[in-house]
């Protein structure tokens, strides 16, 4: 009889311990989820802040760059910028 009580108590203790462990895991996961939601929101808010002027002016740079000649124009601008950069670098080197 005593042996039965011991076995039952042990089983109950094990179940309670498992239950506590699972509750702790749920709390942890809940915490991670909340953190993730907060980070997602913050990222989205930051992205909205960055794209404000593009959206305000209704500019879709992706669509714009898909237009024929856009890539070439960008390359041209980069090429035109190159001597300016070099000149600036040289000036910095010469003048310290």
């Amino acid at each position: 009889m005593d042996v039965d009580v011991d076995v039952s108590e042990t089983r109950n203790n094990l179940l309670e311990a498992e239950n506590a462990l699972l509750c702790e895991q749920v709390q942890q996961l809940e915490g991670q989820l909340a953190e993730q939601a907060a980070r997602t929101n913050a990222l989205l808010a930051a992205a909205q802040e960055r794209s404000y002027w593009l959206d305000r002016w209704g500019l879709d740079l992706n669509a714009l760059m898909r237009k024929p000649g856009a890539a070439q124009l960008r390359a041209l601008l980069r090429a035109a910028r190159w001597p300016l950069r070099q000149a600036r670098l040289l000036k910095r080197r010469l003048l310290g």
Binding site: E49, S51, Y52, D55, R56
Partner: peptide, 8 residues
């Protein structure tokens, strides 16, 4: 209006 514009 885009969301970013409304947010601002």
């Amino acid at each position: 209006d885009r969301p970013s514009v409304i947010r601002e």
